[in-house]
Design a protein around this nucleic acid. Structure first.
Length: 575
DNA sequence: AAAAAAC
């Protein structure tokens, strides 16, 4: 019985009531089902009419054509029904479903490899060529997919023909469907039935770097699997223990997991992967970086089925990661949509000089005191800074502030995501955990409060906006300390069509020594508060912030106490 | 180069 609750079957709808009792911590307004109304009301007329972030700007003017073997990427979506009525929890997907259907930007697609299968122009053509089930096509339509994006029209045929694939495609261009559809098409009969050659145990495996992303992929997967009896499992502690029963796990068809979770289950003997025929690494460069690599290798090594199909997907793939990826793949095809490591031109990017850390908060508060398009996603470098910035914003009466980082409990994280999906978060402060893959369609503004630690991080962070052909805006604060890394990011802006002040471009490339020296400068553990006034309120309000106690690691509690004691944690260190 | 995330 428990197993049936935990194992989401294909066809089961996502539990709509699950978040019903969420405490609406930050809503000053009464929670309402009518998003537009709620937003307009609470904005007290400060926000522009276009603020209704569930309607999307027409991306027309920003559309750019590139020549070459041009790929049509159309807006894939469609259904005109208002999303909210349909499902409250806003389950996520890589695709749009807004009423206003912005045209997708067109990107050049390049392929490399032996006998590259012909791309398809439509899902119809795909069905005809590969005899996809009507069911799958219906589910596609109902999920709002209309026309394949670049990566979908090239990637799906490659995977359908059982080839290995390295796919590089910008943020928000529909990578998830590119691997889900072929996997589903090849699953055939559920393992629970005795028909077909399903064998016993998991047949497809999708790995992602964060719980939130795995969850999002799972939701998308359930939509596509409607009406089928596949068992699609989002691997978690709970499911892992359920799968300790071999009878249960033998009936699982598809698993979505983070690597470490799966490694733990393997070691505990709670899962076998010898029947896995498809492995997908989402956010491949992240999955192949030093911390994840050995875990991923262990998982891959446990997949002993002959000729396992492997595919890796990302918007960024630095040379080192690509080399590792290619060495794992057999006779791979490499597909690149647009320019690797480059944000979409739809995202208007800018850089803001803030001198030093203490100047950031006033700058942000000033920004948030003017009309903006909620929800705004704000990135900081550490968990303590995420928690303390969220705190400071609450103290300063910014409405509907939320916080999400991996130091929070599973439930707190889930709640934060669901508030975000429901449009209840106006300002979401988070760490790198949110930087990759997360698809919040309404996000039109990203602020890098703390400078990103790599070009890849930058590209993924700002890629939370400008999804599926919509416009977006990204602001990056930089301090004197960030100067050594500024030029690299400035070049990214230039390459993707945003403008950069000339003086930044004229910056000399700092010597390695200088960079190393500056890299040592430690950032304050907590965000520097704007003022000491209202500190008493602050303490009260602090406890309202999701997970404000447990979530905090030692470092943070220390920072917190420092803050309370001497009233300031400004990083006074000179550089 | 470096923190975050994975449990």
């Amino acid at each position: 019985m428990e197993a049936f609750q935990l194992l989401s079957r294909g066809g089961a709808r996502f539990d709509k009531n699950r978040f019903k009792n969420d405490v609406q911590l930050f809503n000053k307004t009464k929670p309402s089902n009518d998003k537009g109304k709620a937003v307009a009301k609470a904005s007290e007329g400060e926000l522009p009419a276009e603020l209704d972030f569930f309607k999307y700007a027409q991306g027309g003017s920003a559309k750019r054509k590139t020549s070459g073997s041009e790929q049509r990427e159309s807006a894939e979506n469609t259904t005109k029904k208002p999303r909210l009525e349909e499902d409250e929890d806003e389950d996520e997907d890589d695709q749009p479903d807004a009423a206003d259907d912005p045209p997708m930007p067109r990107h050049r697609v390049t392929t490399k490899g032996n006998n590259v299968p012909e791309h398809v122009e439509s899902f119809q053509a795909l069905q005809e060529r590969y005899a996809l089930s009507n069911r799958l096509l219906t589910n596609l339509e109902e999920s709002g997919y209309k026309r394949p994006t670049g990566i979908q029209s090239y990637g799906i045929p490659i995977l359908m023909e059982s080839r290995d694939l390295a796919a590089i495609s910008p943020t928000g261009t529909g990578k998830t469907l590119s691997y889900l559809l072929p996997v589903m098409a090849s699953l055939g009969a559920p393992a629970a039935s005795s028909k077909g050659d399903a064998g016993t145990g998991v047949r497809a495996l999708i790995l992602a770097p964060t719980r939130e992303l795995a969850h999002q992929i799972h939701n998308e997967c359930l939509k596509l699997a409607q009406g089928r009896k596949w068992r699609i499992v989002l691997f978690s502690k709970a499911t892992a223990s359920t799968l300790a029963d071999k009878n249960v796990r033998d009936k699982v068809d598809l698993v979505i997991s983070t690597p470490l979770r799966l490694v733990a289950a393997l070691q505990a003997g709670h899962i076998e992967l010898d029947n896995v025929r498809h492995i997908v690494l989402d956010e491949a460069d992240r999955m192949l970086d030093s911390e994840f690599l050995s875990q991923v290798q262990e998982v891959v090594a446990a997949c002993t089925y002959p000729n396992v199909q492997k595919a890796v997907f990302s918007a960024t793939l630095p040379a080192g990661a690509e080399k590792i990826a290619m060495s794992m793949l057999q006779d791979p095809i490499r597909v690149v949509v647009g320019l690797k490591d480059t944000p979409l031109p739809l995202i208007a990017q800018s850089l803001t000089y803030v001198a030093d850390d203490p100047s950031k908060l006033p700058t942000l508060l000033q920004y948030l005191s003017q009309p903006y398009n909620p929800p705004v996603l704000i990135f900081v470098s550490t968990q303590p800074r995420a928690a303390s910035l969220a705190e400071e914003l609450v103290i300063n009466s910014i409405p509907n502030v939320d916080c999400l980082h991996a130091g929070m409990t599973r439930k707190e994280r889930e709640d934060a995501v669901s508030r975000m999906r429901r449009g209840e978060s106006w300002v979401m402060v988070s760490t790198e955990v949110m930087a990759r893959g997360m698809d919040f369609k309404g996000v039109r503004e990203v602020i890098n409060y703390d400078f990103p630690q790599s070009v890849q991080s930058y590209v993924h962070r700002i890629g939370r906006t400008g999804r599926a052909g919509r416009e977006g805006k990204a602001i990056t604060y930089f301090t004197n300390e960030d100067a050594p890394f500024l030029k690299a990011i400035a070049n990214v802006l230039l390459q993707s069509g945003s403008t950069v002040p000339e003086w930044i471009l004229k910056l000399p490339k700092p010597s390695k020594m200088k960079r190393r020296e500056m890299g040592k400068v430690k950032r304050a553990e907590a965000v520097t508060p704007a003022s000491r006034i209202g500190r008493q309120d602050a303490i009260k309000k602090r406890d309202m912030i999701a997970g404000s106690k447990r979530r905090q690691g030692k470092a943070e509690r220390k920072a917190q106490s420092t803050q309370d004691r001497d009233g300031s944690v400004a990083d006074e260190r000179e550089n």
